[in-house]
Simulated scan of single mutants.
Amino acid sequence: MKKFWTLCAALLSVATAASAQTTMSCCTKPAAGQAATETFAMLASNTDFSGGHDAPLPYTYHGEGAMVKFKTADGQTGQGFEIKSATPSKKYLFVIHEWWGLNDYIKKEAATFARELPGVNVIALDLYDGKVATTPDEAGKYMQAVKTDRAQNIIRGAMQYAGQDAQFASVGWCFGGGWSLQTAWLAGPKAVGSVVYYGMPEKDVAKLKTLNTDVLGIFASEDKWINPEVVAQFQKDMAAAKKKVTIKSYTADHAFANPSNPKYNEKFAADAHAATVAYLRKSFKLKA
């Protein structure tokens, strides 16, 4: 597969008597009223986490597609990079960026999905409102600054832009992986699919019960953040919610599908991408 991530896992502050040190743990449950995506965003302050993300190499996308804007319920404007289907379609795939933001790598990912899913409109959403990071420090700040309400308004605004008869599937990596699952929840009965690449799973079983779709989860067994314990708990939570989740786990590290990452595994990335495309084709009921 390709591009990489967007949030991972989480923590809670554990203060010692003498010094207030913060311990990060993927398995910590969100505090009362705290969204799983917000809990995950706190990882940006973990130097081990941020240090494991090398800045992407310079890249400029030259291809089809254009930026579009749409109204959001909070009185602001949202935006995304859209590649329309060659034929009129009510099927929409939302592609959600990792912690770098909506950069040209993500536009390239959107274009790849558009080619492989004929008859589907593809929109790469911008949850950073125009900000794009080029260093881990910037990326961490932008990820932590994302407010749940604002991100939800952007996603809902994109859904309104697509129209009331639209069907939605989503795919995202790390930060975007967590938001891909949230997108399926926000889409309600209009959701037909969700792909989560090593992103923070939703831990609220009550919310999972309202999902209208199954989920494809792609994880790495050597991931220190969204680790096997987190994945196992997600499977248990989905079972408790009586929802189907298909897990593909690779003997790899976090962001193994990101070609600009030192931990990139071309073989596993290609296999995961093929599984993703097959899943999305089935979700959208595309003809062979």
Rank of each mutant, 00 (worst) to 15 (best):
H273G: 15
Y105V: 01
A32P: 00
K287Q: 12
Y250P: 00
A114I: 02
G75V: 14
E38C: 05
Q164L: 01
Q235S: 10
L57N: 06
A272T: 15
G217Y: 09
F113R: 04
E229A: 08
K244N: 03
V195T: 11
F234A: 03
K29S: 10
V171G: 09
V215L: 10
V122Q: 02
V230H: 02
A110Y: 04
P201G: 11
K243S: 11
D165H: 09
L93G: 09
A278M: 06
A239D: 07
G163P: 15
N153L: 06
K287W: 09
G63M: 14
G101W: 00
G163H: 11
S249T: 12
A275C: 06
P30I: 00
S50H: 07
L125G: 00
R281M: 06
S25A: 10
P56A: 02
T135K: 10
L208F: 01
F268M: 12
K107W: 00
G52V: 04
K107S: 12
Q160D: 07
D54Y: 09
T246I: 02
V231N: 12
L7V: 11
Q182L: 13
R150Y: 10
S194R: 09
I96C: 12
Q160K: 05
Y59K: 03
Q235A: 15
K244L: 06
W5N: 14
Q34K: 02
L93Q: 09
D104H: 10
A66H: 02
D165P: 14
K71A: 15
F81E: 00
F268W: 10
G172L: 13
K242N: 03
A35K: 07
T28K: 08
A133H: 04
H97S: 02
Q21A: 06
Q144A: 11
G188H: 07
C27F: 15
D104L: 06
K108F: 15
F175D: 00
S260H: 09
P58K: 03
W225Q: 12
Q233L: 08
Y92E: 13
K147Q: 02
A255Y: 03
V14P: 08
K209C: 12
L117V: 09
M24A: 07
L280Q: 07
A124F: 01
T72A: 13
E38K: 07
T210S: 08
A187D: 02
D129Q: 06
N212S: 02
W5S: 06
T77A: 03
D237S: 13
F81D: 00
V215E: 13
V277M: 04
S25V: 05
F113N: 15
P88E: 09
Q235R: 11
A35Q: 08
Y198M: 02
I154G: 00
W185Q: 10
D54I: 15
P136W: 11
K141R: 09
N261L: 08
K71E: 07
I106D: 08
V95E: 14
L211M: 15
V277C: 10
G33A: 09
M159Q: 01
T135S: 08
Y128N: 13
F234Q: 04
A191Y: 03
T72F: 02
P189E: 12
T23Y: 11
M67S: 12
A36F: 13
N121Q: 13
Y161V: 12
K141G: 01
D214Y: 10
L43C: 07
I96K: 04
I123M: 06
G217K: 03
N46C: 11
Y264G: 07
A191H: 07
T72R: 02
K69H: 03
A257V: 04
K244P: 15
H53T: 03
H97E: 03
T22V: 05
T6Y: 05
A31N: 03
K107C: 01
